[in-house]
């Protein structure tokens, strides 16, 4: 694909390995880079909000994006307590990108998954969630065709006007291997970000997330074929009925409670 005039910026964060909790390249961000490289090759710009840490493992994690073949990562320097959304938005306003790629959610920190939405709001752009692929870009009509990933392998083709923000799903193509040599030789270009202090988060207390209780699946299947079906079939949403009227609504709730054995 030759999209030479297209300006694509991919946002990268430092991820965290789920078991060892060591810093690493975040899986979705790496997929975003992969998608970006396939789209515009060397013209892909990469932005990381934060300073270059003295911690070697943090640096290695950030460098592993460089190892995918990028020549540089732009560092948007901001203090620890800054509001990344506002700093990034301020920076991107000046850059006028056509496409901004992010992961769906960060692997550590707030991990709210809100960043792409808030950026879209700030920049007044369209936002496409969980894309798996950018199929084509029509630079004349300023339109892109993207493939959105839905649960259970389903895909939805969407048309979106440029410029837009897209969060890249795990269903996107696997990121290429990060090579040690280019990772060590790649450069960081630092720019000082605007100052927007995150007032709210200073009052927050951070605790480790607990695993949410999960309903045990009771499978009544007797045959292997049934068990297979139960394991693979898409969970039925109960038909998604819209109930009108107070009486009917109350009855529906009561039925559910009875069914669950709670009443």
């Amino acid at each position: 694909m030759s999209n030479n005039n297209l300006s694509v910026i991919s946002l990268v964060s430092i991820g965290e390995h789920p078991t060892s909790r060591r810093p690493r390249r975040a899986e979705q961000d790496a997929r975003a880079i992969e998608l970006g490289i396939k789209l515009v090759g060397d013209n892909l710009q990469t932005l990381h909000a934060g300073e270059l840490s003295d911690d070697a493992s943090q640096q290695t994690a950030l460098r592993s994006y460089l190892g995918m073949g990028l020549t540089e990562i732009n560092l948007l320097e901001m203090p620890e307590n800054a509001d990344a959304v506002l700093v990034i938005a301020e920076h991107l306003k000046q850059k006028n990108p056509d496409i901004i790629l992010t992961g769906v959610r960060a692997e550590n920190g707030e991990s709210s998954g809100m960043l792409p939405y808030l950026l879209a709001e700030q920049l007044d752009m369209a936002m496409v969630t969980s894309i798996a692929e950018i199929l084509s870009i029509d630079e004349v009509n300023k339109q892109a065709e993207v493939l959105q990933a839905l649960p259970r392998g389903q895909r939805r083709k969407l048309k979106v006007d440029l410029p837009f923000i897209a969060s890249v799903d795990m269903a996107a193509a696997l990121p290429r291997q990060s090579a040690f040599g280019p990772a060590m030789r790649g450069q960081f270009e630092a720019t000082l970000g605007a100052t927007f202090t995150d007032e709210e988060s200073s009052d927050w207390q951070i605790v480790d997330a607990k695993k949410r209780p999960k309903r045990l699946k009771i499978i009544k299947a007797k045959t292997a074929a049934d068990r297979f079906k139960a394991a693979t079939a898409k969970a039925s949403g109960g038909g998604g009925k819209v109930v009108h009227g107070v009486e009917e609504s109350a009855q529906a709730i009561l039925d559910l409670l009875v069914e669950e054995g709670l009443v």
């Binding site: 390995h17 078991t19 060591r22 290695t60 291997q177 990060s178 090579a179 280019p182």
Partner: peptide
């Protein structure tokens, strides 16, 4: 230099780095 270890190579090397 090229990051082209075939098969499961890339995954294995990433695991070794992380775990």
């Amino acid at each position: 230099e090229k990051g082209q270890t075939p098969g499961k190579g890339s995954e294995i090397l990433e695991n070794l780095s992380a775990t």
